[in-house]
Design a protein around this nucleic acid. Structure first.
Lengths: 335, 335
DNA sequence: CCGTATGTTTACATCGTTGGAGAAGCCCAG
DNA sequence: CTGGGCTTCTCCAACGATGTAAACATACGG
């Protein structure tokens, strides 16, 4: 079944190594031999066994990507970009889902399939500072999202504080005064959420507006249902509010659904903003204002940084990925 | 850096093979030796080199999944389920994006990384009947979606004709009479679309209602923007219609956005239905009626079928995956 | 016409693991 | 005490590729 180098060699009447040389583009092979070998390769439909090659060379051309869940749109979009970027460099991507659980993130971090993966890109949720340092077993790692360790591990992120600050400021300058928050950090998770909350507070400070932390809603997860539940709770408190800043888009979309059910008009009565700028933001009703990280750039840089590390490069690139605040209908001025 | 079997063997004072035996749970190893070996494994932090193992055993524990694009939500959802199901069986999943291009689908089909992948699950768009038969190079393959070849290759699908028929019938029985279609097959693509159109026609036949094929809109792709564009065109024709059956959910969501912009009320003026039942259907405004294939079941069966083939099993399982028509607000009766 | 430089091809060891054959140690029946 | 059957363990070869070094061929200048 399997065609081996040896078979090609026999057919072409040369040694195994010569065939290997032809395939790997080794320069000193005579034109005639090369032609003969290539003919044999063609005739037999030879394809190298990457298993063996990588055993020999020590590199597999496969990288692992760990995300919480693929059906969380943001991560699917990032994954799509990562796969594209990796493909352009001749790398293949192995995708793992961690559900944000520390255990599984650690597993991905340590290279899942040792020897089978040249590097790891991980979007961590549950990891602690020390976890990362301890676990990295020599597999190059690039983290996406907030810096987990203060250590040597590469990470890429957007400036969450600044992004949240800009978005909040735009809400305040358009006249909103009671800005609720959905998705405040609970427990040890969500370092990104903490930074976003920080940006929210700074914006209030910048403009000398007081905030009301009774309008800060925690969530059990970061999906539509969680946003819906949180806003339901928010409305239940009876406290007035004229804007909601949701710490991701799915929460915001869940929020929109609940507001609609309560006949609250968006943006006339309440402005809503999200974070991540998933495709759906441009099509929801109303369309959703959101912080838009440059995902293509993020993925590209992640893959390139990883490859640089795999090649043993030592220079750390800029960890900051650009973002933009995209204003859409959901936060149009209320006047 | 790398700890090899040999190192463990030296530390434990036994042969390499004995260590291998311990690790693979070979029964005839004395308790004392086993303990000594395990201690050494622990002490050195040994992890087997899967590259080498799979070179030797001929199995890698990795399967490939090929989908058009991950950021198309339906495929992300399917991928998430496939990764879960594979993980439960100790398999890891390598994800490729084909963009629906024949070339790239063929590449995935022939095992992308020969020897590195034990099997392939592919959701094809551009492949022809013959392509599949010719390309399968001994790697077990399971296709998702419409049967492409009439051949020996396993495939899983839902009954598209019946699903479209049931959905269309429900539109007709609720009083709709001019049901537009968005996503009719163009060119050689879209065998699934052809079947759905077939179901649409049969439902009309069943109830003795005439259809108007000037209400059938073709699309360039199957994303929101394409649905939006198609409905824009549909409205432009000036032809009356009281329902739109979109051949996937994204098209339908794009359609909703355009209808809203034209102040067409859904479902009062026009009913809208989609296909695939992505998560968003439950949260859009209005919520979207859709055909819901059992994705968990689909993924589970795909993985199990693949494994059965990898194990050399010969019995073909039932290729039909259950579905349900989920009625939501977008098709509520107009009276 | 030889020695050397240059270019091309080959033989062999090697990567880390597992399968198979058989060696070594042990226990027990004869 | 010997021999047969177990159990437990070791040695060697092999999976399919590539790197090294050496062998072989050819061409050229002296």
């Amino acid at each position: 079944m399997a065609v081996r180098l040896k078979d090609v060699a026999e057919m072409a009447g040369v040694s195994v190594k010569t065939v290997s040389n032809v395939i790997n583009g080794y320069p000193h092979v005579s034109a005639t031999t090369r032609a003969r070998v290539e003919a044999a390769v063609e005739a037999l439909g030879y394809r190298p066994n990457l298993q063996a090659r990588s055993l020999r060379t020590g590199r597999s051309g496969v990288i692992a990507l760990g995300v919480p869940r693929l059906d969380e749109v943001y991560f699917a979009e990032v994954a799509a970009h990562v796969i594209d970027a990796a493909g352009a460099l001749g790398l293949t991507v192995l995708v793992e889902q961690t559900d944000g659980e520390r255990e599984r993130e650690l597993e991905v971090l340590s290279g899942i399939r040792p020897g089978m993966v040249d590097g790891v890109i991980l979007s961590p949720l549950g990891l602690s500072r020390t976890d990362v340092d301890e676990t990295t077993r020599g597999v190059p790692v690039v983290l996406l999202g907030e810096r987990v360790s203060g250590s040597a591990v590469d990470h890429l992120r957007i400036d969450n504080v600044e992004a949240a600050r800009q978005l909040t400021r735009s809400l305040l300058t358009s006249g909103r005064r009671r800005v609720a928050v959905v998705g405040v950090p609970t427990g040890s998770h969500a370092s990104a959420a903490r930074l976003r909350l920080d940006g929210y507070q700074r914006a209030h400070g910048d403009l000398d507006v007081a905030w009301d932390d009774e309008l800060w809603m925690s969530v059990a997860g970061y999906r539509r249902a969680d946003g819906a539940e949180a806003v339901h709770r928010l409305v239940g408190t009876g406290k007035p509010f004229d804007a909601i800043f949701c710490f991701n888009d799915l929460l915001a979309l869940g929020a929109l659904a609940v507001l609609r059910r309560h006949s609250v008009r968006v943006p006339e009565d309440v402005a809503v903003a999200g974070f991540d700028d998933i495709d759906e933001c441009s099509y929801s009703v109303p369309t959703l204002t959101s912080v838009s990280p440059d995902k293509g750039e993020l993925a590209l840089r992640a893959v390139h940084t990883l490859q640089a590390r795999m090649d043993g490069a030592g220079d750390v690139p800029d960890p900051e990925v650009p973002f933009a605040v995209v204003q859409r209908e959901s936060t149009a001025s209320s006047r």
